[in-house]
């Protein structure tokens, strides 16, 4: 299935992009993040990040579906 991944803050800097589309076979967010962590040397663990699927905060065990957009969110530091 085709998944659009959005990157923000330090993750965007490490990935050197703000978004990309990937073909994935595993529907788990954990597996997707493990792959990205290895590719881009993200230092945060999956459990340290919040997840948004289709622009909504989502549970870590949400199953991905074809066409979803996903963002892994570092701890917020606005204000």
């Amino acid at each position: 299935m085709k998944i659009k991944i959005l990157y923000f803050a330090q993750l965007a800097e490490l990935a050197e992009k703000s978004e990309e589309t990937k073909h994935v076979f595993d529907s788990s967010l954990c597996a997707l993040y493990a792959d990205l962590k290895k590719t881009y040397n993200f230092h945060q663990e999956f459990t340290q990040l919040q997840v948004a699927v289709n622009h909504q905060l989502s549970a870590h065990n949400t199953e991905l579906r074809d066409g979803d957009s996903v963002a892994f969110l570092p701890p917020m530091t606005g204000g």
């Binding site: 803050a9 800097e13 948004a52 969110l73 606005g78």
Partner: peptide
């Protein structure tokens, strides 16, 4: 709020606040 802050220091270093 999903907003993130990076500090830029006088010595030129940068750091995303976590």
């Amino acid at each position: 709020l999903p907003v993130w802050k990076k500090e830029v220091y006088s010595n030129g270093d940068e750091c995303w606040i976590e």
